[in-house]
Amino acid sequence: MLKVTNLETTYNDIILALKGISIEVSPEKIVAILGANGAGKTTTINAISGIRKTINLEVEDGTIEFDGEILNDKEPYEIVTRGILQVPEGRRIFAELTIAENLMIGAYSLQNRGHFQTNKEMVFNYFPILSERTRQLAGYLSGGEQQMLAIARALVANPKLIMMDEPSLGLAPMIVQEIFEIIRRINHERDMTILLVEQNAHMALAIAHYGYILENGRVVMEGSSKKLRQDKDIREFYLGLSESGGRKSFREVKHYKRRKRWLS
């Protein structure tokens, strides 16, 4: 469905952010991209969404292909009409608009306006709290509710692929759990394809089917989430678990630094 091949991007013509990454998202699956700060997760998503000019991002090499069409030079709004919607990092809801208006804008790309009402009902089914406050300004929602609105805003357009950029950012663990459960349900019940970018590897691998580990602009590891969950290095560096499987105790940490195998 979405196929990114050898993507290489620069910021300001100088800083090489992605050093040739390849990612594939197959239909009806949740694919996770994991990595630390600065690994290139958000850059990947923005390159796919076509946000280039405002952040001085340039695609130097490689292709972004969606349903057989190359999307490298498309503008953001053209990419949305192809059926790819982004839930941006930090939610980026329209704070000065009401919840109803936020959803209205979310459905802007909808060709058939007649579907808006049914889509809205479907979205309210996942996020009942939003349906009670449609006339309230979105800026007054709590962080978790804002994240729900951001997801709802993408979902209401009924896209083919939703890309979520760190839906867990700045939220309490319980809210994160709730939101990930909803993401899982959206994928499961609506066969929605989801590309999930996360730092919270534990949560992401719990719901994803497949995962990529990004470090310094390169894919260092990929595989089914089951395989990733069992990998020794992932367990240690991303999930914080010891070899015996329990939570790692820092009292027992040995005083040498383990190297990640993929660096040698």
């Binding site: 709004y77 982004q86 941006p88 804008i105 357009a157």
Partner: peptide, 9 residues
């Protein structure tokens, strides 16, 4: 920017 991400030209 976000408006662009929602499909607005």
């Amino acid at each position: 920017d976000t408006a662009g991400l929602m499909g607005i030209n």
